[in-house]
């Protein structure tokens, strides 16, 4: 097995072009598990940890650009105020050790329907930047996920960064697991409300073949908030509207029965989490007035 260790991004892309079967490795918290389970014996590894720019982030024209190698711990410590939804999701990931090693790039690379970074990235309409030695392309998050553990990334490509606007308003993330820590999501839900743009964003994890959004639920809530000018008055939202929002989120999921839970429970839990998340976010918005 070859172990490739580029120190610059250009070098990494050239190596990936030359060895399309090389498996990129960042924190290794997914890759090494796969190896340990004997699911893969890759011909080569492409170690991305020596490329400094991958673990950096910055603000460019009002948009945050976060390197693929930024860890969960960094996200919590350094970006918690600007990306509160993603930071909340990061706090639920594994254990301190996993949060110190694991990266959002790796979460995207695995493209698991249960990846906890995905719902908040969907809810805040982030963009993923893919690059190969042939060039760079940017994809909206929802186009990135194409199937269970499958993404739109090509064999010659690497994930360089994701781009997202700093939070325009309250963001929430909740995840159901059958243990109170260190648990893979049975299902999860992310919410971003953007008062300036009068927009609501959602993301659902572990309840469909890929992470998905709930567009109908988003439109419904935007309608409710717009109709009564609640964005302005910041009045409480009617219980009936909350229930409907929950139902629409649940309806957007396409869950299955598996070892972690039943499809029926996942739908039920999504509706509850959607309602609660919105109430928390809305209360925060009201309190900020």
């Amino acid at each position: 097995m070859e172990f490739l260790q580029p120190t610059t991004w250009t070098e990494a892309l050239a190596m990936k072009a030359a060895h399309p079967d090389a498996i990129p490795i960042a924190g290794g918290t997914d890759v090494m598990v796969e190896i340990n389970f004997d699911r893969h014996r890759p011909p080569a590894f492409l170690d991305l940890t020596r490329i400094a720019e991958l673990s950096e982030w910055g603000l460019d024209n009002g948009v945050l650009r976060v390197g693929a190698g930024v860890t969960y711990t960094q996200l919590i410590d350094e970006l918690g105020d600007r990306l509160p939804g993603l930071a909340k999701a990061s706090r639920t990931v594994g254990s301190p050790q996993i949060r110190n090693r694991g990266t959002v790039g790796g979460n995207l690379g695995s493209a698991s329907p249960a990846g906890d970074a995905h719902p908040p990235l969907l809810a805040s309409r982030a963009i993923v930047e893919l690059a190969s030695s042939a060039g760079t392309r940017r994809l909206p998050m929802h186009e990135f996920f194409v199937g269970p553990k499958r993404s739109a990334m090509r064999k010659d490509e690497l994930i360089r960064a994701f781009l997202v606007a700093p939070a325009q308003g309250p963001q929430q993330f909740s995840k159901v697991g059958t243990r109170n820590a260190m648990v893979i999501a049975v299902c999860s839900f992310a919410l971003a409300i953007e008062p300036d743009r009068r927009r609501v964003g959602t993301g659902i994890g572990s309840a469909a073949p890929t992470p998905v959004t709930a567009p109908e639920a988003e439109r419904f809530l935007e309608g409710v908030l717009g109709e009564h000018d609640l964005w302005q008055t910041r009045a409480p939202v009617a219980e009936s509207a909350l229930l409907r929002f929950g139902e629409l989120v649940a309806a957007a999921a396409r869950p299955i029965d598996d070892v972690r839970g039943t499809a029926a429970y996942r739908r039920h839990a999504l509706a509850v989490m959607a309602r609660r998340s919105f109430v928390w976010a809305w209360n925060e918005y009201r309190a900020a007035a």
């Binding site: 639920t92 929430q172 159901v176």
Partner: peptide, 8 residues
Amino acid sequence: GGVSNTTH
């Protein structure tokens, strides 16, 4: 639900 933020 612990740190997974499912209930306040």
